[in-house]
Nucleic acid binder design. Structure first.
Lengths: 345, 345
DNA sequence: CTGAAAGCGCTTACAG
DNA sequence: CTGAAAGCGCTTACAG
């Protein structure tokens, strides 16, 4: 219960002023070797650790980044969060994660909390089109970078991956396998990834003169339950689709649940593909064809952009390509169904 | 770039002293209705938000909890972290997560960082037997609670689940299916969950007069790669096991990778079971039999214990039971192999 | 009910 | 190279 030593205690023990202690702690050049030695000895023997709270108040920097993501339980965001933390640590920053759970109100709660704690910068993957709070923070000059999703019309660097080419590849793959009735489980239209993936899908279909009727666009929210619900709707259609493309991996999980609950089989009865690849997709029944993002690189790039901004350099937006990973959930890649265990990648 | 308003600005705008502003902000009873109204109006019009850093320095509390877990990428810990954050938020605390990645040095880094930031209390799932830093923090009186894993001989409340009964059920299930050569992929012996699960497994086997030879104990580290490596070793044995029980879900993933790489089939060639259940296990090929922990409840209980400790009440250790979820990865539950899609739970 | 003042633990011009 | 002093933005006895 020994309340920890303060800089005063160290100064007293070393026989110097607190200013000198502070200088050696911050490796300020003008300290005599003798003073330095005595201070270091005192620090050691007292087990002194500077109070980061006091330092932050004084210097007006917390060396902390805030990360507000849509859903920690989504393996994509978990990996993103991990990569963010690693890069931040390498650059001398800590990160506080806020989980918005796809709820704008929770997102605002976390943004406000992070701002109150005076984080040096904010990384956010917005759940919606931008609340007054978020827009206010941007206007107030809070260093910010959007990652994965962004808010159109707001002047903030964006680090994301472009899935258009991969979605074209996916549609080509599906078309080659003979699928013509293609449906999508979309994310919320208020998110960029929600609307972009639908747009890219529609454009890719157009190349084959295939329409994307409204009945084949299911409105999900990036969480498993919505994937389940939407898929049930598709299966109830007079003319169900041949393929369901889930705009994220959790909705794909929900789709699998729904298909299985009906006693149907993938890809025999209905094919499935997902945006965002995860390790488990190799082992699902069947292995799931997915579009993989360079998640680690995105996290790293986002932190670098934010730290550039914080430290007065010019941050850059970054767009990295995603790529298609073909497995067996849309049918056998070649000819009639065989038992080949093909693992592309 | 408007540097945010301070309490002084509010006081000036409201025509009162900063003390009065502070009082209304902290809902101190003795403030006149008139003063309160003027302060609130000033707060509103200036968009004032108290500086949490300054408040923390003054009150010596940050309303922040630290959570140091072994591996965020492990879905079990992700769910635990989420539950911890939810309960903490409900009680008015924020949480900073440190990811130790099963490395004692990283664990120490995070503990030190959290301590420097003066978190009010620490929740930890220790990666090892306890570093001098961790033991020192306990001795210094840092409010602490262990969750999932703990350090023997250290007087800190523990919130965890007891897998013994579930492991007995698992072994009974395996025995009933005719399996006699049972192997385990263990976690690090330095962790309690690492050693306990092996002990419980050995004890359960003893009830059937089955030995657990050293060759059937593979040393893993709770991460996927080790599960892969250990499983390869098992398969190379002159007499490979009938069943592999992975002590966590990531090592089970690695085991599946290894089995598939050999072109073998679960459960036909080798059966598989895992500690820690995850949603994907329903959809793997085959669905994986697993032991499920009440993860959400553990997170909640851990936060409550820690907050009890922080706020001067007496914290209690909590042990919750885990339970077996039978699926198809150990063979058909009844009679010869059928195609029944049984989903227990 | 209210304000002036001290103080939380630091850092940093300023003067020497 | 060093120390005294101011100040970061709050809270809280203390006195009135």
């Amino acid at each position: 219960m020994s309340s920890s030593a303060s800089i005063k205690d160290v100064a007293a023990a070393a026989g110097v002023s607190v200013a000198t202690v502070s200088r050696v702690l911050n490796s300020h050049p003008s300290v005599s070797p003798d003073a330095r030695t005595r201070v270091l000895a005192a620090v050691e023997s007292l087990g002194y650790r500077p109070n980061a709270v006091a330092r932050s108040l004084r210097t007006d920097q917390t060396r902390t980044l805030g990360l507000v993501i849509s859903d920690v339980l989504n393996p994509y965001f978990t990996e993103l969060a991990r990569s963010v933390e690693e890069e931040a640590r390498a650059l001398g920053y800590s990160v506080i994660i806020g989980n918005a759970d796809e709820r704008p109100d929770l997102q605002d709660h976390h943004v406000q909390n992070l701002l109150d704690r005076r984080i040096d910068g904010l990384l956010v993957s917005p759940t919606d089109g931008g609340s007054p709070l978020m827009l206010g923070a941007v206007r107030a000059g809070t260093p910010m970078v959007f990652v994965d999703r962004w808010i159109p019309g707001v002047d903030v660097p964006v680090v994301r991956s472009d899935g258009r080419a991969a979605i074209r590849d996916l549609v080509a793959h599906l078309h080659r396998l003979g699928h013509r009735r293609l449906a999508i489980i979309a994310g919320p239209a208020a998110t960029t990834t929600g609307s972009e993936r639908v747009d890219a899908f529609r454009e890719a279909l157009a190349r084959y003169a295939i329409e994307l009727p409204d009945a084949y666009i299911g409105q999900g929210d990036f969480q498993a339950d919505s994937g389940r619900r939407v898929t049930e709707g598709f299966l109830d259609l007079p003319e169900p689709p041949d393929v369901v493309f889930a705009a994220d991996n959790l909705m794909a999980l929900g789709a699998l649940d729904a298909v299985r609950a009906r006693g149907l089989r993938v890809p025999h009865d209905i094919a499935l593909a997902a945006f965002d690849d995860i390790p488990w997709f190799v082992h699902t029944d069947p292995p799931v064809t997915a579009i993989a993002q360079p998640t680690k690189d995105l996290g790293r790039a986002a932190v670098r952009a934010l730290v550039d901004r914080i430290e007065g350099r010019v941050p850059e937006s970054v767009t990295l390509p995603a790529h298609l990973v073909v497995r067996r959930s849309c049918g056998e890649p070649s000819g009639p169904r065989t038992s080949t265990e093909r693992s592309t990648r």
